[in-house]
């Protein structure tokens, strides 16, 4: 039995609280990261990703407290992304109990930061987050470039070349988000996902655009993703992780039961 594909719910955390309307009727405090994480663990989530969207830098330290509390009660892998700028930031989160950290803007600003981080804490802890947007006109061969700041700032960097470079610099995994699809519920950008996944030798997590369970399975089957990440379809109680896994299994995808 080979390696299972993974389903990863993603939680946005602002100053220590889960935001963007997690709606569960069966937990007392839907803003408490520990309660939400425990709920996803019970449902069979393979990992949990926390995205720190705290705007003010003096409240950023609260993310380590969140990780520490969750890691004391939830025994599956935890990834934290958002605002990570230094090896000290990374160590702080790993020591609090995170297994992996996601690096995004800091990698675009200085690619050598990824190399330094991987050398210091090991590639297995370093996830490079790639926000890509299609730049080729309709009818032309497809091309994607890296964007930062939620898709607002273009960098002119080719997405596939960037993905390969980040692997060479020591990324242990890539979290790939299509900025064209993020928030649209139209499904992953499958061409983008497949193009990146087939051109690198590290695992790729597909993200951005999941609106239904079929989107998760096509991300793996057609997008060649090693893991799929989604937020709203799980938070709003549209589907449970169990339902998602049952669907994936019905499509012949190997899942941890």
């Amino acid at each position: 039995m080979p390696l299972a594909k993974r389903i990863i719910p993603c939680l946005d955390v602002d100053a220590g609280r889960v935001v963007k309307g997690v709606k569960f009727v069966d937990i007392r405090d839907a803003g408490d990261p520990v309660e939400v994480a425990k709920r996803y663990d019970r449902e069979g989530a393979d990992e949990i990703t926390f995205l720190d969207i705290t705007a003010s830098s003096d409240q950023r330290k609260t993310m380590a407290d969140v990780v520490e509390k969750v890691a004391s009660e939830v025994f599956i892998p935890l990834t934290v992304g958002g605002g990570i700028r230094s090896v000290a930031d990374i160590r702080h989160l790993l020591n609090a109990g995170a297994d992996k950290v996601g690096i995004n803007t800091a990698a675009v600003r200085d690619p050598n930061f990824v190399r330094e981080a991987a050398e210091r804490v090991g590639s297995q802890c370093i996830v490079v987050s790639i926000d890509a947007k299609r730049v080729s006109p309709e009818g032309q061969p497809k091309r994607w470039e890296i964007f930062t700041h939620g898709g607002r700032n273009a960098t002119g960097i080719d997405a596939i070349q960037w993905a390969q470079k980040m692997c060479e610099y020591g990324a242990g995994e890539l979290l790939l988000t299509s900025m064209d699809r993020d928030g649209t519920k139209q499904g992953f950008d499958l061409d983008l996902t497949r193009s990146i996944s087939d051109s690198v030798t590290v695992p790729v997590i597909a993200s951005g655009g999941v609106g239904c369970l079929e989107d998760l399975s096509t991300g793996v089957i057609e997008g060649h993703a090693d893991a799929v990440l989604a937020a709203s379809i799980f938070h709003f109680g549209e589907y449970t992780i169990e339902q998602a896994k049952a669907h994936m299994l019905s499509q012949g995808i190997i899942m941890r039961a």
Partner: peptide, 10 residues
């Protein structure tokens, strides 16, 4: 195969 071997296996 992708390396690292990352995820759930039996």
């Amino acid at each position: 195969i992708k390396v690292p071997h990352m995820g759930w296996n039996t």
